[in-house]
Amino acid sequence: MTRSRNRISTQEIALLALLTTLALMFSYIESLLPAPGPPGVKLGIANIVIVLILFRMSATEAAAVNLLRVLLAGLLFTGLSGALYSAAGAFLSLAGMILLKKTRKFSMVGVSMAGGVLHNLGQLIVAALLVGQRSVFAYFPILIFSGIASGILAGIIATLVDMKIPARYFKRHRHQQI
């Protein structure tokens, strides 16, 4: 039954809900930490979850979890302007990560690193629009470096988690398809 492969299973819904909660928890922890530097400098630990989903499941699922995370975080703790920043960062970063992943030439760490930089870039663009001044781009270098650092960190953690979690937790009922 190859057709069942396209249908989303109950187990998969439960897993995605669990992963969304996890990503949301990470976003919450980040919102509690004082901003360590200029706008956009974030630890980006929620990206661990997104990278894992992107590699183990699919781009669609990564996008769904990311969208839910940003929406829920905006409603619960970051507020409208916070949600605007994180949405711009999250979607620029996700788009870049999906493209890099598709090339099959980069590891989780490489993809996550690009995601970290793009995440900061997205936030910087929103900041420039909100303030109405290009001078915000003075933050550009520091945001690149912090994006690289946080992206690599998230990528390494994602790789370690990926090695520990048995593949069957992410696979779509392979045992039932046989």
């Binding site: 030439k105 980069f106 590891s107 989780m108 760490v109 490489g110 690193m113 690009a114 930089v117 550009f140 270098p141 690149i144 470096f145 994006g147 690289i148 690599i152 990528g155 390494i156 790789t159 090695m163």
Partner: peptide, 23 residues
């Protein structure tokens, strides 16, 4: 499993160069 592949290193170098140039 290696954390970094060759292309990751190239990407890292490229991003660092952009960052340093912008600085």
């Amino acid at each position: 499993r290696a954390f970094f592949r060759k292309n990751d290193i190239i990407l890292l170098a490229a991003l660092l160069i952009v960052g340093i140039a912008a600085s």
